[in-house]
Simulated scan of single mutants.
Amino acid sequence: MNLYIAQAVFIYLAPPVYSAAAYNIVGRLMNYLPMHAVFHPDRVLIVFVYAGAAVEGITVAGAAKYAAAGDDTAQYKSGGVLIAVGLILQAAVECLVIAVVAMIHTRAAKAGTVPRNVRTLCMTLYGTSTFVLLRCIFRVVESFEMFGNIGCEENCGPILSNEWYLFAFELGPMLIFTFWLNLLHPGRFLPRNKRRYLDTDGRTERMGPGWSDRRDPWETFLDPLDFQGKIKGQVSHDQYWLRPDEWSICEDGSFAEGTASNVKSTQTRREKVLRAGEV
């Protein structure tokens, strides 16, 4: 029974935890495109992780009660309700992630600065979040089917009676998510240093000071979109990208043009070639 409970918990727990990788990419993308950031880039991971932690707590509690219910119908139902609530909240979080990425993508497109690396990352985030969303919808439908067939021993509904649904809508999306994120690893498209950003010309990369908010940290948590600053007509963060001449140009290539890399051996090799060319 204990192994079965652990198995149920981990199956429901894994996809939301895995989604945290995508949340981190969104924050790093905002650091790379600070002029198009929806809110404080360094708050993205924290906001979504806290939301994900709440979802995780509900889902884990539900999975544990559901797996340990045995013949206790009331516990079985309460566990299922918690799982359904957790899945719906997870779907809402994924929709919010897609909306944030869409806002960044739209702003960059309007400014005419959507290089290949940014476009690839946006497509990756759209795709991976959609797969998690698809999985959540499947699990919600499955949970409602369970409620309608309590005590059923056979022909309990198509999802409960056919294992291929599980492979198609749980295993399949998560497997594609895994391969997609590894084949198009964000380390190939974003700089390691968060201070490095893409200039408004869409090609040049500069080493800026990093995102700086003049407000108290608690204010950035309570008002991440800086509504107060927008109402006053003066944003609370430093728009350092409007002063490009103050920041040095990165001489080791550009991720926007596919000539930069986070791999140290590649950087060293490129530096040697540049020095040889100068000689």
Rank of each mutant, 00 (worst) to 15 (best):
G86Y: 10
M1G: 05
A8Q: 13
A54V: 15
A54M: 13
V118K: 00
E145A: 01
V85D: 09
I11K: 07
C122P: 05
I83C: 13
G172E: 07
E142A: 13
H36E: 09
E153M: 10
E145S: 06
Q90Y: 14
S254W: 00
S265A: 14
R192V: 03
A108F: 04
A8T: 09
V55Y: 10
K232Q: 13
A67S: 07
N117I: 00
W180Y: 15
S129K: 01
L183F: 15
W247A: 05
S212G: 11
E251K: 04
A74S: 10
E219H: 12
S19D: 13
Q234V: 13
A84H: 11
I249L: 02
L3C: 05
P186A: 01
G187W: 07
V132D: 11
T124E: 07
A21M: 09
L171D: 06
G52Y: 12
P173M: 06
R206D: 06
F177S: 09
V101K: 03
W218D: 09
D213Q: 05
L29T: 09
T204G: 04
Q228V: 15
I150F: 04
L225H: 06
T128A: 06
F255R: 00
R139H: 07
M123C: 15
V81Q: 12
I83G: 04
V44N: 10
E163G: 13
A102L: 09
A84S: 14
Q239L: 14
L121I: 08
M123H: 11
M103K: 08
G52R: 06
R196Q: 14
V93F: 08
T130L: 10
W180K: 00
L183Q: 12
T200L: 12
R206Y: 07
Y165P: 04
H36T: 04
D72E: 02
V141K: 12
T200A: 13
M174R: 03
F48R: 02
E145T: 01
L166C: 03
A37L: 07
N155M: 05
D199T: 09
H185R: 05
Y18C: 10
L13A: 14
R196N: 15
Y12R: 00
V235I: 15
D201K: 01
T268E: 11
C95R: 06
H105R: 12
N2C: 07
L274H: 08
C95A: 15
G210F: 13
I159M: 06
G157Q: 04
L171C: 10
E145L: 01
L171Q: 07
W241R: 01
L33S: 05
L13M: 15
W164D: 08
T259F: 00
W247L: 01
I25F: 11
T266N: 12
K232S: 12
V44D: 02
I231V: 12
T128Q: 10
L3H: 07
I11H: 08
I176F: 15
F169R: 08
G258K: 01
N2D: 06
A22D: 08
L175H: 00
R192P: 00
I104H: 10
L198T: 00
V85P: 06
F39L: 05
A276I: 01
M1H: 09
V47Y: 15
N149T: 11
Y126C: 07
